[in-house]
Design a protein around this nucleic acid. Structure first.
Lengths: 328, 328
DNA sequence: TTGTAGGCGTTATCAG
DNA sequence: CTGATAACGCCTACAA
């Protein structure tokens, strides 16, 4: 069903049908009603592809993430998609996997689909390969980088203040009387490195002692457990642990429990993300809330402003705070 | 950059450029090399929109889910998207929310975008409003319904055998010597109703006793907790509980712990989904594995077969099994 | 092997 | 208010 079919059936011209379809003025009331009725009865919907071709717009936004299955990512997608859909856009979403090269290759797909903007969720997109691919394939498309920064004119940044956030966690622990906080992470993402740095600053400035950093195996569940066991065996003086993400911390809680260490009496535990995991763990987990919802909404708004030609800030940082629960 | 630009620059005709772009025969070796080189240097990518218009295909698949933030949904999306992208398709994904009318409205968006197939994830799409909308807006588009059934010629079903699965859970509990299993759910989705039915059958046929069913408040975390407390107070003889989903079960575990009830010594607990929550709970949760991965892969394959015109089964059921952990 | 012309379904610009 | 007509970028007969 095209505007031509309608035009023929009603003995009018395609242009008139088009005007009605686009709700434009310059059509007699009766004619409009007639067309509208026909459309309604025949479930006519304009072919967006054709419309886009002539309008030079696709109303498509590309979203790239390493893996939606991570709660962190799904949360962001949820808000961004809903906000954009309400404005007539639609989102094509790709799970790129962890590999940098694979991430970079997806830029070409986005370019081919003529997305009007791209959103890259996760700090791991901040890497040379991706930066290069953006310059190459999307030099004029606004790109929104979640939790990362790139020095390109078309790249916007939405950051969580995780570095300061973790520094604040150290202070928070100090105020609780803790003297030996350790930091445990399971991967060196730009985001985790910031947290790590924030931890080091906190330890040095608030406790005037040396940082104690452990790197656990990649797998969050097993890594959090094994890393914690090792940490406590080698450093029994540890009285608090900050984990780079909640899931790791939850596994850490199990390890401490198996070791007979009481949380929070003997050891305080803090995670990052303030995710569902933090709400259901035993004991419930104190977690650094990096304001995912705020970040997502902000991203959606910046994106819309950018698309409508408005000048917007190129870089925004959303402040995090500590959600205290039973583990501290 | 269009094929015309390239044609002009190279003093050849657009059709030749098109042939090269589509890797078709009938172009002299040197000409082809020349064009390829130019494309490479100028990062040319054909405009998919235009190509789609003439090809009458979009290579777009629409995916509808109530809420990606639910682990269950994200898992499915992950596999389906990856599989389809590897075949040159791209996925537009919409979070519809829980409301049936909102779900139905999305059919029009899909129709407008001319998706080549639609995937509806979650049994809640099995409702009259959605069925009607499919008939109206997508009468000729293959629609894949995850965990649900519709009697329409273009709707395919991929089901998890949750009913039998839960019946098997009851038998499993009986074999462990349990005599009073209860069932707790927090929403009446078609999927949950099947589980419920499976539970009733199990209790009647294996234990020859009366079912004990509790409906908890909607919110999974609070609902699982409150529902369990109430259940145990009103029926202290309960020696095992099957929860409609893992998250509910995890909250139930906390409630039992707070009540001083030992799991699994006094009460056995089983969840459904075999999700991450089951792996990290304390104690680790025995869960009915509904084979999400299998279902997703199967969906992707059926979808591809359907698109390529192959005849496929209209309805498939993936068998579930019990993943035993510490809670039973 | 290469080029020309028509069409995919819209929208927009002009005439009428 | 309405109707031709030319784009939009690409593909594909058909012609050369």
């Amino acid at each position: 069903m095209t505007i031509y079919d309608i035009a023929n059936a009603l003995n009018i011209s395609p242009s008139t049908v088009s005007r009605v379809a686009n709700n434009k003025s310059g059509v007699r009331r009766e004619t409009r009603q007639l067309v509208l009725k026909y459309m309604e009865e025949h479930n006519y919907v304009p072919n967006i592809t054709a419309r886009n071709l002539v309008n030079q717009s696709t109303k498509i936004i590309g979203i790239l993430i390493a893996d939606v299955r991570l709660a962190y990512h799904a949360e962001s997608i949820y808000h961004i998609q809903r906000e954009l859909t309400s404005l007539g856009y639609c989102c094509i979403i790709f799970n790129t996997g962890a590999d940098d090269a694979a991430k970079a290759e997806h830029m070409q797909i986005l370019s081919q689909r003529r997305v009007e903007a791209a959103v890259l969720i996760g700090s791991t997109f901040q890497c040379p390969l991706v930066e290069e691919a953006i310059q190459r394939h999307l030099p004029n498309t606004p790109v929104f980088l979640f939790n990362g920064h790139m020095d390109l004119p078309n790249v916007f940044s939405i950051m969580a203040d995780e570095q300061n956030g973790v520094t604040n966690c150290v202070r928070f622990l100090m105020q609780k009387g803790r003297k030996h906080p350790a930091f445990l992470l399971n991967a060196h993402t730009p985001s985790n490195d910031l947290k790590l740095f924030g931890y080091e600053i906190g330890v040095r400035s608030y406790l005037h002692s040396e940082p104690l950093i452990y790197e656990a195996p990649e797998d969050s569940v097993q890594g959090g457990y094994d890393g914690t066991i090792q940490l406590m065996q080698e450093h029994p003086e540890t009285d608090s642990i900050i984990y780079s993400v909640d899931l790791l911390a939850v596994s850490g809680l199990r390890a401490l429990r198996d070791l007979g260490v009481l949380v929070p009496d003997q050891v305080s535990v803090i995670g990052v993300d303030n995710s569902m995991y933090a709400q259901i763990s035993v004991p419930r987990l104190t977690s650094l809330d990096n304001k995912l919802l705020d970040m997502s909404m902000t991203t959606a708004n910046m994106l819309i402003d950018a698309l409508s030609g408005k000048q917007t800030t190129r870089s925004i940082m959303v402040l995090s705070d500590i959600k205290e629960r039973e583990s501290t």
